[in-house]
Design a protein around this nucleic acid. Sequence first.
DNA 1: ATTACTATTTAGTAATACTAAGTATAGCGC
DNA 2: GCGCTATACTTAGTATTACTAAATAGTAAT
Lengths: 120, 120
Amino acid sequence: MRQFKKGSLEMILLCLIAQGETYGYELLTRLNSGGASVLGYAREGTVYPILYRLQDAGLIRCRMAPSAANGGAKKYYALTERGRETLGELIAFWRAYARCVEDFIGEVPGEETAAWKSSI
Amino acid sequence: MRQFKKGSLEMILLCLIAQGETYGYELLTRLNSGGASVLGYAREGTVYPILYRLQDAGLIRCRMAPSAANGGAKKYYALTERGRETLGELIAFWRAYARCVEDFIGEVPGEETAAWKSSI
DNA sequence: ATTACTATTTAGTAATACTAAGTATAGCGC
DNA sequence: GCGCTATACTTAGTATTACTAAATAGTAAT
């Protein structure tokens, strides 16, 4: 089932960074505390490469912080202006996409359309 | 944006087959008429390999049909019992997953939670 | 000094979808 | 018959995204 995750992880990480400057390890733990049961457990090898991609794409910027009280040096990430714009587009697209998938599901015999669909 | 599609195409094809026995080319055209603007245009090289995977997994079964009035021979697919069960699980999982993603979006400043969420 | 926790990096692999081409059948007009 | 179009299926090669698994390194407590 993990395949559903593909593609939306980038958007989810952008969502988390949009809430305020943060760093990789914290993103990892927040990702795994909010929805790990559905998303599956994400490890370092999943999260860090996405951050590098997002930075290469100019959607987030990075600030080095020296070693904190406990642990190694951190790389704090924040959204760029372009990242904020892109995140808005991604969210709009995600919702259109989810709606489209729900339309396909709604035509399956025995699968009622989700309650929210008729309430929009 | 196309990356959202990854993983859910299998489920969408199962949804379409669940509506009744059908064949690859028709799946292709139905896929592209229902939501191509959001999903992106799917080609043969995308759809047929998925059908082979689904068949290998025992979720659909195949029946050959001789050349029809117009065009080549068709391979009609139908859900197996296992396919029907799996589709139900996939739909449940998809909805839990979409809900989880919406939760992450809901925490983004400026992004209101979708209306349906509060109505469930 | 060993353990535990924090924090980042990366090499190799797997899964999924896309591109782009090819094969083959049938009907139609000429 | 021949080319054209539409139908229908196949496949090789590539790209993208995520996962596995391991390594590196700093801090602090025992």
